[in-house]
Simulated assay, not measured.
Amino acid sequence: MGKKKKQFAIIGLGRFGGSICKELYEMGHEVLAIDMNEDKVNAYAPYSTQTIHANAAEENVLKALGIRNFEYVIVAIGADIQTSILTTLFLKEMNIKNVWVKAQNHYHHKVLEKVGADRIIHPEKDMGVRVAQRLADEKILDYIELSEDYSVVELRATRKLHDKTILELDVRAKYGCTILAVNKEGKVEVAPNPETRIEENNCFVVLGRKRDIQRFEDEGISAAF
Rank of each mutant, 00 (worst) to 15 (best):
K139I: 00
G208N: 08
E145F: 02
I81V: 15
E189D: 11
L62Q: 03
Y107H: 12
D212H: 15
C177K: 04
Q104N: 12
L13M: 07
N42V: 07
Y72S: 04
Y72Q: 13
I81C: 08
G208R: 11
A56N: 06
A173S: 15
L135M: 15
E59K: 15
S19K: 12
A64L: 14
A43P: 01
P123M: 09
K40Q: 01
R211H: 08
L13S: 05
C177Y: 02
L24C: 07
F16R: 12
A64F: 15
K110T: 00
A43Q: 10
Q133I: 00
E93Y: 11
L180E: 06
V190P: 05
S84C: 09
A54S: 05
T158P: 10
V73Q: 04
A43Y: 06
K139H: 13
D212K: 15
E219L: 10
M94P: 10
Y107A: 09
Q104M: 11
R156S: 12
R209M: 09
I34G: 01
Y25S: 03
K139V: 01
L135G: 06
V101W: 02
I10P: 03
E124A: 14
M127D: 01
K40L: 05
E185S: 07
K3W: 10
K4Y: 12
S151F: 00
D126T: 07
P46T: 02
E217V: 07
K187R: 14
E113G: 01
V115F: 08
K63Q: 12
F204Y: 14
D35T: 05
V153N: 06
R68N: 04
T165I: 12
D35V: 00
N55I: 13
S147D: 10
E26L: 05
H109C: 02
L32Y: 02
G2K: 11
N105T: 12
F16A: 10
Y150N: 09
F8I: 03
E124R: 11
L146W: 11
N42K: 13
M27S: 10
A56F: 03
L24N: 03
Y107W: 13
A103I: 05
D126Y: 07
R215P: 11
N202A: 08
L207N: 05
H53L: 15
I179F: 13
D126L: 09
I166R: 12
G12E: 00
P194R: 08
N183R: 14
T83H: 04
A56V: 06
I81Y: 02
Y44R: 03
V129F: 06
N42I: 02
E219I: 05
A9S: 14
N183Q: 04
V31Y: 00
V152C: 10
L112K: 14
K3R: 12
L13E: 00
Q82C: 06
F8V: 08
V152D: 10
I166F: 09
I221T: 02
A54C: 01
A43D: 04
E200A: 06
A132M: 13
E138S: 15
V115D: 08
